[in-house]
């Protein structure tokens, strides 16, 4: 019964959270209040863990909540509940696209849509930049415009970019190097 509820609650979250990962948060917050499975403080802890482990954040959250409420089986059930609506919707969209891929209007839609999609990714890049290369909170306290730049991180970023362009190795290699740099330099 618990597993059925876990599946159903996460199925709902997966169905209504449009826009990926963090869009699941308001749903999880409501779920915690309704079911009593976890408190808001526990949710904050879960978010921190989900953000510090590999994989899609929504999936991490489902696994974590599922485990806390129903053990290892709970984590599998919650995750499958979360992804089931996506898989079904994409199957429908995918068969539609296959059928109408060469339609001129569908192609025109994608011509406009690709530009928007790249812009949305670029805008999320800006928020990652703000989080990792700038220190807006330091600037807010000191008022010194130079304090807004986190120079050490910016230098590492430039070096990483040069290395990526030069060596074309797998992204995981650069991630590993930067994690070690983070630990060694105490970022």
């Amino acid at each position: 019964m618990l597993y059925l509820r876990l599946f159903f609650e996460f199925f709902k979250t997966g169905l209504f959270a449009v826009g990926g990962g963090l869009a699941t948060l308001p749903f999880l917050s409501a779920m915690g209040e309704k079911t009593g499975w976890f408190t808001q403080a526990q949710l904050a802890n879960m978010i921190a863990i989900s953000e510090s482990t590999p994989g899609p954040i929504g999936v991490n959250m489902a696994t974590y909540v599922g485990f806390e409420t129903g053990g290892a089986l709970g984590s599998v059930v919650a995750t499958i509940g979360l992804i089931t609506p996506s898989v079904m919707v994409i199957m429908v969209v995918s068969s539609f696209l296959k059928k109408y891929k060469d339609n001129k209007y569908v192609q025109a839609v994608f011509y406009g849509l690709r530009a928007a999609s790249v812009a949305l990714i670029a805008s999320s890049l800006l928020s990652v930049v703000e989080m990792s290369l700038l220190s807006v909170d330091v600037y807010n306290t000191t008022g010194n415009i130079l304090d807004i730049f986190n120079f050490l991180n910016i230098m590492i970023a430039i070096a990483l970019y040069a290395a990526i362009k030069k060596y074309n190795a797998h992204p995981a290699v650069f991630l590993l190097v930067s994690a070690i740099l983070g630990i060694v330099l105490g970022l």
């Binding site: 890049l125 990652v128 990792s132 991630l175 070690i180």
Partner: peptide, 25 residues
């Protein structure tokens, strides 16, 4: 600390990927 380092790299990797998509779209 590891994640502070990772975030810098994620930033650069996304920039690199976006610039490739930009050229195509």
């Amino acid at each position: 600390h590891a994640f502070a380092g990772l975030r810098v790299c994620v930033c650069v990797l996304i920039f690199n990927a976006v610039s490739k998509l930009f050229k195509k779209s």
